[in-house]
């Protein structure tokens, strides 16, 4: 009898403590766009994600909250409960909220999508996002980058949905938004990055800069993620070997460029560099840089990485503090504003 009473008391205390800890966790996360209860993300990463998500909220009215918590139990039920408790979507005037819950202890991640948005971000699409974009980064131990890379695809989908008027008007949304939509997956955090399959070599011998870019797009279409293709410059090969390449990124890049037309191919540095650029209004298609090595045109992602930046809308611009005058000279017929956006 005494044992039973002690057991009941012990259980009650444990349940009460869990409830108190949960309540404290919820309070600690209130109002934050990125809430890490585990110290899993660095302060810089939290700051970077928060800034990006603030821009996402301002531009697309999507309130994307990231919570890192350990041992949350059933991550599906927890995410739905947390969505409600944290008031995800309240910062959005159209009640668009997304919750990303990462549990490193259980090695699980769940993206909770509310009613209304589930027609745009279907469960199947979210599964694709997680498995084909997020998890490869997580496997490489780059959780914050994985979240950012996933957000890029969320933005891409939001842009299409806005164009096709797929979003449901807030007055037509149900009272309870957390309906358990979205997807969860094994996060595979730091389990070792497995690069997508490579493929046969692609040579650019005798090709023009534009033909090299076309050959690169064909490699993307074939899912050829090899970092050692002959169409890459030496610096690009080195860089690509350290990159996390995901099938979703490759698909997205290809889809983006398929909707853009080449505007001009120009050269600089005495014909040693070439630039395949797209219409000035096609802001999502950044120019490709090519460099001549061993008498062949090779894609130079290394220099592109130094000079080109993308904003939250996936629009490219030059980093004016870095871009060299010789590169700018190849774009002399365009103007650039102080932030490096062409017009």
């Amino acid at each position: 009898m005494k044992r039973k009473i002690l057991l009941t008391l012990g259980l009650s205390v444990a349940l009460f403590s869990t409830a108190v800890v949960n309540a404290q966790n919820i309070v600690a996360c209130q109002g934050k766009m990125v809430c890490d209860q585990t110290g899993f993300l660095s302060n810089d990463q939290i700051r970077g994600l928060t800034e990006y998500h603030a821009a996402l909220l301002e531009r697309y009215d999507i309130d994307l909250k990231v919570v890192v918590a350990t041992n949350v139990g059933d991550i599906g039920l927890k995410a739905a409960a947390m969505f409600k408790e944290l008031g995800v979507g309240e910062k959005s005037s159209t009640r668009k909220g997304v919750l990303l819950l990462i549990d490193p202890a259980q090695d699980k991640v769940r993206m909770e999508i509310p009613a209304g948005l589930d027609a745009v971000y279907t469960d199947g699409f979210v599964t694709y996002l997680q498995q084909r974009q997020m998890v490869p980064f997580f496997s490489a131990g780059r959780v914050a980058d994985g979240v950012l890379a996933t957000t890029e695809l969320i933005v891409g989908r939001a842009q299409k949905a806005a164009k096709n008027e797929e979003f449901i008007a807030p007055e037509n949304l149900p009272t309870i938004l957390a309906i358990g939509a979205g997807a969860q997956t094994k996060a595979s955090i730091s389990k070792g990055y497995l690069a997508p399959a490579g493929g046969p070599d692609v040579s650019g011998a005798g090709m023009s800069p534009q033909q090299v870019v076309d050959a690169y797009h064909q490699a993307l279409a074939q899912g050829n993620a090899s970092p050692d293709l002959s169409i890459y410059s030496r610096a690009t090969k080195d860089l690509k070997r350290s990159w996390v390449v995901t099938p979703a990124q490759m698909k997205m890049e290809l889809n983006t460029y398929q909707s853009c037309q080449v505007d001009k191919v120009s050269t600089a540095q005495n014909g040693q560099m070439a630039f395949v650029r797209y219409g000035v209004r096609q802001r999502q298609c950044a120019p490709y840089f090519l460099v001549k090595e061993d008498g062949e045109w090779k894609l130079d992602f290394s220099t592109m990485m130094q000079y080109i930046r993308f904003n939250v809308e996936n629009k490219w611009h030059f980093d004016m503090s870095r871009v060299s005058p010789s590169v700018l000279s190849a774009f002399a017929d365009w103007q650039f504003d102080k932030n490096g956006y062409p017009y």
Binding site: D74, G76, T122, G124, Y128
Partner: peptide
């Protein structure tokens, strides 16, 4: 396959929706 992944995602998602709805 991407097609199967999509279906798998929808089924798993539906199971979670069912759990949440049952609880509610």
């Amino acid at each position: 396959s991407d097609q199967f992944l999509e279906l798998q995602g929808q089924i798993e998602g539906t199971e979670n929706r069912i759990n949440v709805a049952r609880m509610a």
